[in-house]
Amino acid sequence: MKTPVINAKGVCLTFETNDGPVQALKDVDLGIERGEFVSFIGPSGCGKTTFLRCIAGLEVPTGGTLTVNGLTPDEARKARSYGYVFQAAGLYPWRTIAGNIKLPLEIMGYSKADQEKRVEKVLGLVELDSFGKKFPWQLSGGMQQRASIARALAFDADILLMDEPFGALDEIVRDHLNEQLLALWARTQKTIGFVTHSIPEAVYLSTKIVVMSPRPGRIAEVIESTLPRERPLDIRESPEFIALAHRVREGLREGHDA
């Protein structure tokens, strides 16, 4: 049997804080297959960010096993397996958009010519073709976040981890970015892990929705989407969509009562 791209078995993580231990993750079992779009949803403090950071090797689980592409998260990071998109675009004001996208490429030692080619390619992917020479402050918040997605795609990682990437943006911009993200996912065949607070966003984007609950952070329910891969924005008015959203809401409520 093929092992999933991201494979978590009994992952636990306890933070030692001054106020005593905080159990951020408890017995998380999850397999994510190649090409899936997996959303993590749940109330604040249920460990969504922590789990994503474990996958990225930014936190080390205190129990269980976690592999990424069959490697430890640390090895996977060194093998450039994933790109990580934070909630804030985090573009450097002293670099142009192209310069910002080159940043990881410079660090990873790509040749100058290769850098140029890749910048052009990913700018096209996020529909910012003519913006390479602009500085971050000349772009709207949504465009900045697209640039930060381009930066995460520049070095061909086949996994994209996104922690509430559109959380700070308004609804209209968000809808547009969601649509673009789906198109990008279809074109690039990436495996995507996506943290969100929004039920419609999770249902619209995902092939799999992981509902999490807090204290201690754990998976309450994993919902496989029944929606087709091709998703126009108005699919959100379909009965199927509404039924899925309802299931997610129920899952969140049960997790909360528990």
Binding site: R80, Q87, A88, G90, I107, M108
Partner: peptide, 24 residues
């Protein structure tokens, strides 16, 4: 912390982080 974590996701060395992030 976010900017430093971002550097870590790219496995940047201390000196790369210094010249590209800390110094500017």
């Amino acid at each position: 912390a976010m900017q430093l974590d971002q550097m870590r996701t790219w496995s940047a060395t201390n000196s790369q982080t210094f010249w590209r992030l800390r110094l500017p």
